[in-house]
Design a protein around this nucleic acid. Structure first.
Ligand code: ZN
Ligand code: ZN
Ligand code: ZN
Ligand code: ZN
Lengths: 162, 162
DNA sequence: CATCAGATGTTATGATATCACATATGGAGA
DNA sequence: TCTCCATATGTGATATCATAACATCTGATG
């Protein structure tokens, strides 16, 4: 199973495991997993959905962990840079990674109805894109792949228009 | 050749042809290709790069075609909706389509050094992404595919760090 | 002419993101 | 220990991107 996000799962365990994985990764790479950074990751993990920076900041504020935008953006920048969180460009929002610590290139399935987001695995330099890049001499370093559409649940509930 | 953008070409002709194609498409589909909409498309075509809405608005303003953000955003919305212009999510910017009028799903190669953008062709429901979607029952309606990296020219000029 | 849909003009505001500068903290080396 | 320095944080201000709301205009239809 590679893409979770549209199905029920052991949420408590998933949060715990993710935090543990990030902790281990930070120790190994001498990265500072500070309280704000940890808390931002926890918020994203516990909600399990894409959240805007200001929405995260609201929570931090009530907990006395920072009240100004740079606090949230700096923590998010750290988490994104190190691959623990991904930015969903289409939503200007952030979501916790489902494979923290592992080197991977994510792709996302975003439901336009309920905003649920599932992380899948993308092969960057394979397929059309890789061919086009190779043809033109372009060097791909990173890729944003975000599919919009309807998740299984919302697909059910949409009236058939017929 | 499917991806232009990193190479020299007949620019005058490319602008003329694109405008003509859009004009024809609008006539056929009873869409109003108004002065503001036409001018915004011309600006994007002539610059041949990704431009922010406010940058476009600056030009409109000097020409008396509108001075407030909604003017630019409404024109861009029309052009994007009808596939004559694409939004580059990663840059919060817009770029003229290189296949206007044709039904297609674009992918982009974006140079992080010089901000040049090339449009390529993506096959949405093929490959990893399509598989992941099919596995989970997700229905893909639209996709954002944007690769970041170095274009051929910038790749040359970057010092080797060695 | 009356009506209406679509396009535009304009003011204000909302949402997202960064700059700039002060302060704190903790480890490496003199 | 003390100094230095890199990294992280606190905070106010500001930049950048985008839309809401409402008035007005214009052309097509009947
Ligand atoms: Zn991930
Ligand atoms: Zn859904
Ligand atoms: Zn296109
Ligand atoms: Zn370049």
């Amino acid at each position: 199973m590679d893409t979770i996000g549209f199905e029920a799962h052991d949420h408590k365990g998933c949060v715990r495991d993710a935090i543990a994985a990030v902790e281990a990764h930070c120790t190994r790479h001498k990265l500072q997993f500070t309280p704000v950074r940890r808390r931002v990751l926890e918020i994203l993990l516990s909600e399990h959905r894409a959240m805007g920076a200001y929405e995260i900041l609201d929570t931090l504020r009530t907990e006395g962990l920072g009240s100004q935008p740079p606090v949230a953006y700096r923590a998010l920048d750290f988490l994104v840079t190190n691959g623990f969180v991904h930015k969903i460009e289409r939503l200007n929002a952030f979501i916790a990674c489902t494979h923290p610590g592992q080197d991977h290139t994510p792709a996302f399935l975003i439901c336009r109805q309920c905003d649920a987001v599932a992380e899948a695995h993308a092969e960057p330099s394979k397929g059309m894109l890789g061919r086009a890049a190779a043809d033109t001499g372009f060097t791909i370093e990173q890729a944003v792949v975000e599919a919009m559409g309807l998740c299984p649940q919302c697909r059910e509930s949409v009236h058939p228009c017929a």
